[in-house]
């Protein structure tokens, strides 16, 4: 039950993009086509899960025993940057087809604040390892949901005639706002 609440909360109620404002850059950047947004979502799901596990272990077995918990930010960003590089190299050798699908998005992920955000959030929320993994996967699914819906809307938006000033970023933000309004309907479920 506890895990179901974590999942519903992370996917719908506290959606990472539309309620917590993390990962806005890829949300606006790679959402012009459904295809690329699916690729990006896959890459985020992959990296966010591994990064959360690794940073969780580092926090609890390296930083806290050494009494340097305040080095969290520095340690995490280094680990995430190194991890993304490693995943890229391993994927290239081990599964060229998966690398083909996710490859272009991997370098972009280091600066995706959703990854670092989730890694810090699981520590703040005092989750155990299994809860952290469930939370990370659910967050990534929430990201994917928002991104793919948004990409679908933007594809049809290309065909609409807009006032000059609203083209590009402004209309994308207004659409994201309407989407956030829709997601607010989930408030109170958990």
């Amino acid at each position: 039950m506890e895990y179901i609440i974590i999942i519903i909360s992370a996917v719908f109620v506290n959606n990472i993009v539309l309620a917590k404002f993390l990962g806005i850059c890829p949300f606006l950047g790679v959402s012009s086509k459904v295809e690329t947004s699916v690729g990006m979502s896959g890459a985020v799901l992959f990296v966010i899960t591994i990064a959360t596990i690794v940073t969780y272990l580092i926090m609890h077995y390296v930083l806290i025993p050494l009494g340097i918990g305040y080095m969290q930010t520095v340690a995490y960003i280094l680990v995430i940057a190194a991890l993304v590089q490693m995943v890229e190299i391993i994927l290239k050798k081990a599964s060229p087809s998966l690398y083909q699908a996710l490859g272009v998005f991997l370098p972009l992920i280091t600066t995706n604040c959703a990854i670092l955000g989730v890694a810090i959030l699981v520590i703040q929320n005092d989750f155990n390892l299994l809860q952290s993994v469930v939370f990370a996967i659910a967050t990534a699914i929430g990201f994917a949901l928002a991104l793919i819906i948004f990409a679908g809307i933007r594809e049809s938006l290309d065909l609409v005639e807009l006032p000059k000033g609203m083209k590009g970023a402004p209309i994308a933000l207004v659409v994201a706002g309407i989407l956030a309004l829709a997601f607010m309907g989930f408030t109170g479920i958990v």
Binding site: G165, A169, P170, I171, L173, V174, G177, I178, A180
Partner: peptide, 22 residues
Amino acid sequence: LVFVLAPGAFFALGYLISIMNR
């Protein structure tokens, strides 16, 4: 109230960018 909540952030920024472009 919606402007203090999440959706308002997107609306306000969207229109501000459009005004700034102008």
